[in-house]
Design a protein around this nucleic acid. Sequence first.
DNA 1: CGCTATTTTGAGATGGCTCAAGCTATGTGG
DNA 2: CCACATAGCTTGAGCCATCTCAAAATAGCG
Lengths: 226, 226
Amino acid sequence: MNALLTGSRIFAGLEGAALSAVQRSAHVRRADEGQPFVSQGEPALAFYLLSKGYAKISQVTPDGHQTLIRYIGPGEEFGLVAVLSGFDYPASVEAATASEALAWEGELLAQLMERFPTIGFNALHVLAEQNQDLQRRYNELLTERVEQRMALALLRLARQAGRATAGGTQIDLPISHEDLSEMAGTNIYTVSRVLRRWAHDGIVETGRMSLLLLRPGALEHIAAPE
Amino acid sequence: MNALLTGSRIFAGLEGAALSAVQRSAHVRRADEGQPFVSQGEPALAFYLLSKGYAKISQVTPDGHQTLIRYIGPGEEFGLVAVLSGFDYPASVEAATASEALAWEGELLAQLMERFPTIGFNALHVLAEQNQDLQRRYNELLTERVEQRMALALLRLARQAGRATAGGTQIDLPISHEDLSEMAGTNIYTVSRVLRRWAHDGIVETGRMSLLLLRPGALEHIAAPE
DNA sequence: CGCTATTTTGAGATGGCTCAAGCTATGTGG
DNA sequence: CCACATAGCTTGAGCCATCTCAAAATAGCG
């Protein structure tokens, strides 16, 4: 567990007393595939650090559209807003595979931050990076077309949950075309057509809820045409 | 200046010693219309709090497209990443009207945060809200069409830099169709056509670099159809 | 009084969406 | 172990909102 903590972005650089204080105040939560950790709109009570499995962070718009913001894996965090009193969770997080997370009550994490400023700076760091990521993707959306956005989505998936195999990069998540459409901002029909074209070109191999990237390089080329 | 500080999100809740420490370490920077405060990609050395005027925060994508993220007014901040060492500014900020800002060296602000944890929490607060705003707009982009996005852009402008007059809400910024197109993620031709339609319907009044919202309610209706 | 930046307008092309329908794995209960 | 239901995926046809490109009109500035 120490390795998980010091390897995380939020508790990186902690030692001795700080580390054990953090450790003592954590508790564990488990969720099976499809089960929610937190739900959008609820008061943000706890901060989480995923220890096993993968989770899916998504959001619904007022008009009912759903968007999939990103997947996270072991060592990544969510629900940081819990340290701030009065905030609601801005998104829902559910287990994409059987998962386990460490949780800290928000109030308590705030106290830890006061005692150990490193945590606070780390938190700023995390939020600043999230911000940059969001801004980059905001721009992507504004300027790229569907095929490029899908390529970017697959590459992100590969980075998050890809496993190198003989044939290529296998995505270790049960992922549907609907998920992909929510990631790339399109619909399942277009996803199907694009994937089929790519499969035909030998860039990917698709199956029911599964995805294998044969030539990630080709995807990068599609994502960033000179 | 005290009122500006305590009224800002980042220094809210400070008193006495803390407030004067903050105050002492600030210096002033001015910029005329069109002049930059900071540029995207540069090392983030200072944090800014706008005291007079309006500024435009924008970003360019690797492929050269420009997007206008938002306008800010007096009491709003930018360049918060400067407290974190090693970060570059993720966006450029330039004066939209003759402006003045208080500036703090990043290193120094970090020290203030250690001494006065309130500042750190406030900073988290600001970043968390920016995150939420970005996420909401990310979703907008993903799910709304151009006309709705333009309506949302105008409403945001009105909130930021709107002045209520007899005839409606005047936008107190020199704003071109190009700016609007960058805000709404479209092009100047479509902006022109939509604005003309709205002008015809008595919803807005447009001029060269000027904008008057006659019926903001109608825009809200366009932005959020039942 | 020109020069330049801004805005308008038209015509044409098209990427991606919608809708409708059929197909195929996978799992379930009998 | 079958057959039936369901969730996921595919395919086609048609449409339309938006983009692109070209060009002209307008406004303000020096």
